[in-house]
Amino acid sequence: MYGLAMAKGLMVTLKNLTKKPFTVQYPEERLKQHPRFRGEEFVWYEERCTGCASCAKYCPLGIIKIVTSPSETAPAEGDKYRLEEFDIAINRCMFCGLCVEACPYDALFMGSGFEQGSYSRQDMVITIDELRQADKHPSTFYRPQLEAQEYDPRGGRPLDWRQVGRESWQWHQREKAGMRIAGRPAPGDGDPDGEGNQLSAPATGEG
């Protein structure tokens, strides 16, 4: 009996010996994450951001800093707030994605990076300028419209702010009043947004 169990065990070992290894040699070989992966390199679209600070309020750790100032020429149309600061201290970030979930305007997205190391804490704070200049490869986390496009964040094609929103533009109440910036598609007259997404739909009326 002793020998039999040993032989059985060794058979398993032998069988696995001939199999292809399951592990990969990381820096040379890479596994591809799923498009929904919640990673760093946050993607932020200034054109979509109204400075409502929902993300900052919803962050469990309070690592998003937003400073706005009243302005007549803010990029997000219809809103009178210009963003002065938008810092994300990703050294304390736990990538829970609640900020992205809270964003009602589809302005903030998770990224799909996972290998940012740094020698100082200051380097781990993403500032507004870095966010503006970064290549936009948003993760499809909590953004069904990107999943429907079969968009892959690692695919190499950066997305601009017109491509990442939900289909309908109804969420922006002020846009209906005719306040619109150049290049922005006209609001669809038909179906209002909110199918299965009533949680992040903003309150109607003046925001």
């Binding site: 994450q33 799923h34 929904r36 992966f37 919640r38 736990m94 990538f95 829970c96 994605g97 609640l98 998770m110 993760s139 986390f141």
Partner: peptide, 15 residues
Amino acid sequence: LDLFEMLCGARITVS
């Protein structure tokens, strides 16, 4: 854990 990554974007701290 790969399945979890598909499901929710994270492997261990899933939320």
